[in-house]
Each structure stands twice: as structure tokens, then as C-alpha cells.
Nucleic acid binder design. Sequence first.
RNA 1: GUCCCCGUCGUCUAGUGGUCUAGGACACCGGGUUUUCAUCCCGGCAACAGGGGUUCGAUCCCCCUCGGGGAUGCCA
Length: 480
Amino acid sequence: MRVRFAPSPTGFLHVGNARTAIVNYLYARSNNARMVLRIEDTDLERSTRESEDSIFRDLSWLGIRWDEGPDLGGEFGPYRQSERFDIYRSYTERLLGEGNAYRCYCTKEELDRMKKGGDGEAESYTYSGRCRSLTDDERKKFEAEGRPSTVRFRVPDNVSIVVNDRIKGPVEFNSSNIGGDFIIVRSDGVPVFNYIVIIDDTLMKISLVIRGDDHLSNTPKQLLVARALGLSEPEYAHLPLIMGPDRSKLSKRHGITSVEMYRKEGYLPHALMNYMAMLGWASESGEEILPIEDIIRQIDLKKLSKNAPIFDFQKLRWMNGMYIRDYPLADITILFMPYLANAGYNVDAIDRTHLETVVSILRRYCDILSDIGHLAGIFLDEVCVPDEEADAMLKSDDGKNVIRASRTIIRDRLDSANFATGLIPAVKGATSLKGKSFFMPLRAIITGRQKGPELDQVMAVIGYDKCKMRIEYCHEHYCS
RNA sequence: GUCCCCGUCGUCUAGUGGUCUAGGACACCGGGUUUUCAUCCCGGCAACAGGGGUUCGAUCCCCCUCGGGGAUGCCA
């Protein structure tokens, strides 16, 4: 059994394509199938090697592994369509020779005119078939004029084509309404997708094509080509497209859509894969967060939803947070380090055990790794410059009272051994404040914020010196 | 326009001719824990698109309508 993922390298890996890749991968793992990575780079203008590299990197980051591809080779290569033109050429000659294809000399301008003329219904246009039955003389005349030509596939009349889709069930098309004779080779000699995709799928012995729903309507064209060429036909499974909140195809204007951006913002690959697997599928138990291995064990094409799901950014975020909280502490600490570095901390200089303690407290506040950036200061900064809320609190009478009392007490009555447990009751007694009017100012002094982890926990971690320094800082700024 | 696909809480889904007073999760709202916030725990709100059939009985099967999406490229 063999499956394939066939991206075109014309940009970053989009989450929609990523889901196709993920389902292919999960299916392959679950059925012990080989996974082929094929690069569909026949759009010479838009395809770039950089895109290809970034797609490889993003797939790898997600944890997707393939068995054959441009980077690994394999017995059915080459795996870039741009390196297979000779193969396609021989098929084109056969099609031409057997009358299943013909040269079309219509220019773009002529085609445009045909579209606009007629009924005025540009939308319902199908190629008129003007060049379908050119005489030898007419053909020679066009050639003599030096007219460039495309190659069109001769679509037979009124033939029923049934796609036995593993997700949708049988879908019937009639050859008479798939848009007429379609171009299979451009005037510059480069073959087009709808033509060569089926050649590659059969040559690469793909048994099941799992791809996006947007290809379903094109499948009859591909099947017709296969029949004309006598090629075997793969099975198909068309995945519903992922939608944006407005129910149109998910795109940039809906939010982040590139896998690369999710990686950079601090989503975990397992969380992303788990979420994407849940988009259109449910586990037997109804659990939504489960190890990839369990998903592989349970996944079943028949259980995939036929509805096009809306991508729920919020739920992905939530799920990522769950992963962050469940991760082994030592590992998640390492994953947080680049984000701490990015926020300006010299992570290598910080004791690892201390860092793990900080992370163990702060990860409860993080849905994505980058969230730690604005929280780390509570533990890692020397002094915490109060934010707007904290500033207002510290300017109040209660605020100043607490600052003064804290300063006196930590300087004169406490040391590093007893301050963490002693400061709160001592200052409370000295100010005779209680409840929020006591804790909120103290929190503002120690952390510069009005919310965050429990104060005694913070103090125990930052230590006497840092605590004292922060109190002195506030005294200087608010009481003098 | 034409062809094709799809319609269960706001969202992702479970369910299948009676066990459905339709289950779970996110979001939202309320409560508890936290003298804060978040985490965590408990509770609540909320859906079978509409209309016809078939049937003793339809969310489930069939048809129509409506709604959404995709295709209709010398893009993939």
C-alpha cells in the first residue's frame, strides 16, 4: 500500500495542505503504507527551491516522515515533476498518435473572444473544439504562420465516470459537462497538473490518493486520461477543505495559516497534529487530546467527517496550552529557552534547575511558548517596573504604607532565611491592612503587576536580595 | 450559469430507525479553590436547516427547497 503527499512549492506550507499531509501520514502509519513525497513544480514561474525547502522543514517539524521523495530518492523517482518531462512527453506523443489528443492553435486572445461572445455567458464557457478536427492543410497553414500550439485532450461524449471516493462514496460525473477538451500541454511545452498527476500516481504505484476536496471535480479528467493511456487507476479519498470563520476557504485574512508561523509563535508540533487530526474526526472514547500513536491506532477513513470544518484558532490555542502543561518539565524548559532568549534573557547563564522552577510555575499561564516572554520578568528581572495598574496601586495611600513598612521590615527584621515566610505577616501587622488592600500593593511591589503566581511562591523563588531590591526600588520611586 | 460535494449546539464533533429529555470538547456564563490572575474542580446555556414522503415510529432512509462550499485556468 502506498500513499503520497504532493505539494507545489509556490509558498509556505499552508495549514490546509498540512492537514492533507497529516492525514496521509497517519493513514500510512496506521496501514503500514509507504509514503511518497512528490513535488509538483510545473508552475515554473511560481515554484521555488526555497519554498520546497521550507515545506520539507515544516513537514519534518510536524513529525511527518516519508519514505521516498526528492531528498531521499526511491525506485520510482525522480520525485520532482520538473525532472520528469521526458516521461510525460512520451505519453503525449502516444495520445497525439492515437487521436486522444490534438494540437490546438487558438491563441489566448481568440479564446477570450470566444468566451465573451456566444451567449455572453463567460461562466458557462466550454472550449468549442475549433481545433478538434483540423485538416492537414489547416494545420500546416497554422504551423507555417509560426503559431504556437497547446495540446488538448479529446474528451469523449457522454461517458459516465464514477469516482469511488473512500470518504464521499461513489460520485458520478458525465464527461459532457467537465468543461470540454482541456489543455494538457502548454504552448511552451510544459504539461499541466490535471494531465500528469495521474501519470505520476500510477507510475509511482500510489494505491490511495488522499487529497483536498478541491480536486474532486478534476478527478474525472484525470481518470479519462488514465483510460486513454490504459493506466491503472488509484483509489481516492477527498478530504473536506478547512474553512475560515466566515466559511470560505481558510486563507491569510482569517489569521495565521502557515505552519512556519505556528512554529515560530510557539505551538508544539504534537498539539498541532493532534488538533488537525481532530478536525473532522473523533476518537472512539471521545477524548480529544491523545497521543499520536493512539490516533494512528484508531484512525479510519470511514470515520472522517464529510463536512468542511472551520478552523478554530482558539481551540488550537487551548489544546497547545494543555500540551505545554503536560510536557515533561525538563523538556518543556528547553523548548521555552529560545523564547526567553528572544525576550532578552541570557538563558545559558541561568541555573537550569532554577529555570525549571520558574517554568514549572509560569507554564500554567502559557498557551503558546511565546507567552512566557511577558511573564518571565516576575522571576528573572532584577526589579519589576510597575505596569499601569500596579503604578496606580502604588501611588495610593495603602500602596505607600505597604512600601514603607516592607522596607523597614525587610531591612531591619528579616534575613534570607526567614523573609519568605516572615514578610507577609510582619508587614500585615505593621500596616494593619488586610485582604486585597494589603495583598495587591505587596504584589505590585514584588512583581510590578496586579496578577500572577502566588506571592509566597514568587518570593521563595526570587530570594531575599531580589525581593529587597524591588522594595527599595518602589520606595525610591513612590515614597521620596 | 453549469457540474459536484456538504448541512446535529456559536465552533469541532458523538449518535443512529425506537435506548435521544440528542452525549462530549472549545468558547461563553455562574460557583468553588487561589485573599489576585491563570491553572484546576463543579454547574449552566446551547443544535438535529425547512417542507414533503417511507414507517407503528424518523436526527438517522428517499425526494424537493433553501443554505454553505468547491470546480469550471496555457494554477496546483
